[in-house]
């Protein structure tokens, strides 16, 4: 196919003139026809697409979906935006916070930089063929199950008007010419997908008693070694996981007995992941990927 030229701009006049030459007794004569003129009206057409490469993995809290709205008509046009979060088939519905435009054009939502569109959310006028990246910021509710899915629909409508294909909006187009709804009726609808990622943490604690006489009787003077294993399951990494445990009454913490994954930790705060005092122990595990576990141990002495 020949190079796809951009559509004829709204408001231009297409003119056609034919010229004839003929022989008139040895003299070549030229005749020009009248010029016929056709004015191009404004076509209202819009396309919308999701810019996310697939379903967004989300957790409770704010999430950003990215969309592209394109003016596929032939005149400058603004588009009114509507976001629908309650979509049939959703396992959960997010709540709409705001719609923002990619003000700095970097394709990433920058809070405070990318301008939020106040309601009613209408884009700036986009030139024919122009596009606008949009961010839809939603809040995912607490308590969503791991793997639960949710769709968010963005609808973009020509600000001049929408209607069945061919609907004419008299004098509403560029330059005062009529505007005409294109095949999509001046409306575009696109859906972004989210899939919830949640994790559960299981803690298992056990105790081993050893007494100075080589047995396992929990008597004064015996040592109790506690083990705590945290296991993360689900699809998400858990961040900032911290294990706290109190030193039981009538026992005394055994100095420098704290370990993480069998490696000793000091009792002092700040020099490693662990800290211990007469009252309690604390180990900061940081980010723990799903499907892994961390084991902490410490020892106490049963007071006499």
């Amino acid at each position: 196919m020949p190079a796809a030229a951009s559509p004829a701009p709204a408001g231009i006049v297409i003119e056609n003139t034919a010229e004839a030459t003929y022989d008139d007794g040895g003299v070549t004569r030229t005749v020009t026809s009248n010029t016929v003129q056709v004015r191009v009206n404004e076509l209202l057409a819009v396309a919308a697409a999701s810019l996310d490469s697939g379903p967004l993995t989300v957790r409770a809290g704010p999430q950003v979906l990215s969309f592209l709205v394109s003016n596929s008509g032939n005149g400058p046009e603004a588009f009114a935006l509507e976001v629908i979060t309650a979509v049939a088939g959703n396992a959960f519905d997010a709540a709409l916070d705001s719609i923002a435009v990619d003000s700095n054009g970097n394709g990433t939502y920058d809070p405070g930089v990318d301008a939020v569109l106040p309601a009613p959310s209408v884009t700036a006028s986009l030139p024919a063929g122009g596009t606008q990246t949009l961010f839809v910021i939603v809040t995912v509710p607490e308590g969503v199950a791991d793997g639960a899915q949710s769709a968010v629909t963005l609808v973009a409508r020509s600000a001049t008007g929408t209607g069945a294909a061919g609907t004419v909006f008299p004098s509403a187009g560029e330059g005062g010419a009529d505007a005409v709804a294109g095949l999509s009726g001046g409306t575009a609808t696109v859906t972004g997908q989210m899939v919830a990622s949640a994790s559960t943490i299981s803690l298992v604690k056990w105790a081993t008693v050893t007494n100075p006489f080589g047995g396992s009787t929990a008597a004064p003077g015996a040592t109790i070694t506690y083990g705590i294993r945290a296991t993360v399951s689900g699809s998400a990494t858990v961040d900032d996981l911290v294990i706290n445990d109190a030193v039981p009454a009538n026992t005394r913490y055994v100095a420098n007995s704290l370990t993480l994954e069998s490696a000793p930790l000091t009792d002092a705060a700040g020099d490693d992941a662990g800290e211990a005092s007469a009252a309690s122990i604390r180990v900061a595990l940081g980010s723990v990927p799903s499907g892994t576990s961390r084991t902490v141990t410490f020892a106490v002495l049963i007071e006499e």
């Binding site: 559509p7 004839a20 030459t21 022989d23 056709v38 009206n41 294109g182």
Partner: peptide
């Protein structure tokens, strides 16, 4: 009302108004 994608026909009607044939007509 004409918008991009519409199909048009441009045409020219010619008539020889004279009493003589017109030759080499381009």
């Amino acid at each position: 009302v004409v918008v991009p994608g519409d199909k048009l026909i441009f045409g020219t009607q010619f008539t020889n108004r004279s009493q003589a044939p017109i030759e080499s007509f381009v």
